[in-house]
Design a protein around this nucleic acid. Structure first.
Lengths: 250, 250
DNA sequence: CTAGTAATACTCACCTTGAGAGCAACTGGA
DNA sequence: TCCAGTTGCTCTCAAGGTGAGTATTACTAG
């Protein structure tokens, strides 16, 4: 019986079949009232020329750090600074079926990111191939990335119900109408403006008033809206539920 | 510019640093009205002698299949047969911080399993070291398995609210009281029997009546309860919500 | 036979929800 | 400058879900 020290000294990691682990990021933002996802065009094989989710191999770093690093590299922004400071990042799930990557066994840990409107990645940086695409125009993607994107959208839609994450899509100060536009874009449904207003203000900790109003009203008229900040709630009680769909019961 | 075929032929997987991928399973069941988790006692290094979640290296198989295989090996039951047929299995999340395993970089994809009361694994099989432990007596676990267990419990508690998964903890026919006992055990809270009864029957597709009643009432009296089967709902509308807690808002 | 318990049904006050109406503030264009 | 249209925000009302409690009845163990 050896002790743990000598066991580890004699341990040979190369004795295992080669596998690799990547992170892939489903980064969502809202532009012009539509939900967009960040995609890259693959330069090398496999799937050269195809669109794909941004991602890459995990280095000597925690998984969360790898996802944030990839997001920063593709957007040309520094993680934790400026616009990326307010990004919400959470693990989505992992994908590892044999054959999902023709090179070798590759496990991918997918992440989901919610960001306020970010500058276009093309502008100047070396994040050459990244661009924002409306989610309903993503089309075919490399590997199993279309399935990952679909899972990410499901998660995002569900999270808006129970959590205040809609505030991650807007700036530090926002109007109720901007928040409603987030729900409309992500859920793809119109919401009753009056009821939404009442609901948001009645959930403790969802938003807090800044006491200010916007400098200008919207382009099409109406009073100057009041401005709000994100509150300190982590869960919405009561939740903002979508109307039940038929797919639910099945 | 090479084409994809010749690219793949020249690809050398061994050029990457060695990493490994495991699955670990948080298998939950209810025994004697208490929530239990399946644990194993580790035979080899590292963490020899410690308790751990059942799990192991992923072979040439999908992740889900690996989790089901591990669960079968540790319980001594055949996957997809007999008692394991009714097990609910879903991916929880992945863990991959450097240093979580002293041997090498090991990524673990954790799974969550809900099972009706299963036979004790000790009985006869070669699943020597596995046993059911009440979740509040799990104590310290190897690696980061205590954190994985905690995440699994959070997920299980939340899933009972929105999904009919409580039925995965009981037999094919069950009484409303048995279902209520599941909620009580998982949430650790007593529920108002009358309201629970009304609620369960009012959610479309949660349970359906068999038309039968149990052959005998409970040990302590009362009428013979009616028997129900799981319905075809995948989501509960409206949901069975727990009372909001203070930790929610924070 | 009795005391205790549990399954089920019912009541009632309270709250949340969806739908709609109303009012005032603001816009761009005539 | 005025006007028509749009929007932010408030309010009302009916419908339905919820928590707490009570009542009835059928069963158990002793």
């Amino acid at each position: 019986m050896t002790d743990e020290r000598s066991f580890l000294d004699g341990y040979d990691p190369a004795a295992f079949p080669a596998v690799a682990v990547t992170v892939d990021v489903v980064a969502l933002t809202i532009r012009d009232g539509r939900l967009h996802v960040l995609l890259v065009e693959r330069g090398g094989h496999p799937f050269a020329g195809w669109r794909a989710l941004p991602g890459g191999f995990v280095r000597d770093e925690p998984l969360d750090a790898a996802a944030l690093r990839e997001l920063g590299e593709e957007t040309g922004l520094r993680p934790g600074e400026g616009p990326l400071e307010r990004v919400h990042l959470e693990q989505l799930r992992s994908y590892g079926d044999p054959g999902r990557d023709p090179r070798m066994r590759v496990f991918s840990v997918a992440y989901l990111a919610f960001a306020p409107s970010l500058p276009d990645p093309r502008a100047g940086t070396d994040a050459s191939g990244a661009f924002w695409v409306p989610v309903d125009e993503a089309g075919e993607l490399a590997f199993d990335h279309a399935a990952i994107l679909a899972d990410g959208l499901d998660r995002a839609r569900a999270k808006l119900e129970y959590t205040p994450l809609a505030t991650a899509f807007v700036g530090p100060e926002f109007t109720i109408a901007e928040l409603r536009a987030v729900y409309t874009a992500v859920w793809g449904e119109e919401l009753h403006a009056g009821n939404f207003h009442r609901k948001v203000l009645s959930v403790p900790g969802f938003v807090e008033s800044t006491g200010e109003t916007a400098a200008r009203a919207g382009e099409r008229g109406g009073p100057k809206p009041r401005l709000y900040r994100a509150g300190d709630a982590r869960l919405l009680h009561p939740a903002l539920l979508r109307p039940a769909r038929e797919e639910d019961v099945r």
